Computed example of a mutant assay.
Amino acid sequence: MAPQTSTEATTLKEPSSGKSGLAMLLPPIAIVFYIFASGYLGAMITMAVIMFVLMIMRKTVPWVALVASLLVALAIYFIFSHYLLIPLPQGVLLEGRLPWIF
């Protein structure tokens, strides 16, 4: 038998548990959260919350994560709802109950 080389030994290592396990579970959790929360919060706010949490988990600076998630969620919402004419859930805040929002 030939001895294992260092590259073979590194590829055979088990993935470490802890944060990597949470990182693997976070996208499915985010999808389930979107399904249940978008009807009440609206698509734009739900997308912003999901993006913010994912950015914080990737160790992004909090103010950058907040600004980026809000701007990207706003852009996605307007592209889908106004240009592509795909209806997205508006939620409580955008149903016309608060007249100062759009």
Rank of each mutant, 00 (worst) to 15 (best):
L71Y: 04
L74Y: 13
P62A: 13
V53R: 02
I56N: 07
S38I: 00
H82L: 12
T46E: 03
V61Y: 14
W63N: 09
V67W: 03
M55Y: 13
I50W: 02
I79A: 12
Y34V: 01
F36Q: 11
L66V: 10
A30C: 12
V49N: 10
M44A: 09
A65I: 06
L84H: 07
L74I: 06
L71P: 03
L54Y: 12
V67A: 14
A30W: 06
W63Y: 15
M44C: 08
F78P: 02
A43T: 01
H82N: 13
A73Y: 04
I31T: 10
S38G: 05
L71A: 13
A68C: 13
I45K: 01
I50Q: 00
Y83Q: 09
Y34G: 04
Y77T: 01
A37K: 06
I76P: 00
P89H: 03
I56W: 13
V32M: 11
K59Q: 14
Y34R: 05
Y83N: 08
T46L: 04
I56E: 10
L85R: 15
I79N: 03
Y40G: 04
A37P: 00
S38V: 04
F80N: 01
T60C: 12
A68G: 09
I79D: 06
R58C: 11
F78N: 10
V61Q: 15
A48K: 02
I50S: 02
M57F: 15
M57Y: 15
L88P: 10
V53P: 01
V64T: 14
T60Y: 15
I86K: 09
L74W: 14
G42H: 02
I35H: 07
F36S: 12
T46R: 01
L74E: 09
L66Q: 03
L74V: 07
L74T: 08
V32Q: 09
V72I: 15
V32I: 13
G39M: 00
A48S: 12
F52I: 03
F78D: 04
L71H: 01
I45R: 02
I76Y: 09
M55P: 00
I31M: 11
V53Q: 08
I31K: 06
M55C: 12
V32H: 06
A73Q: 01
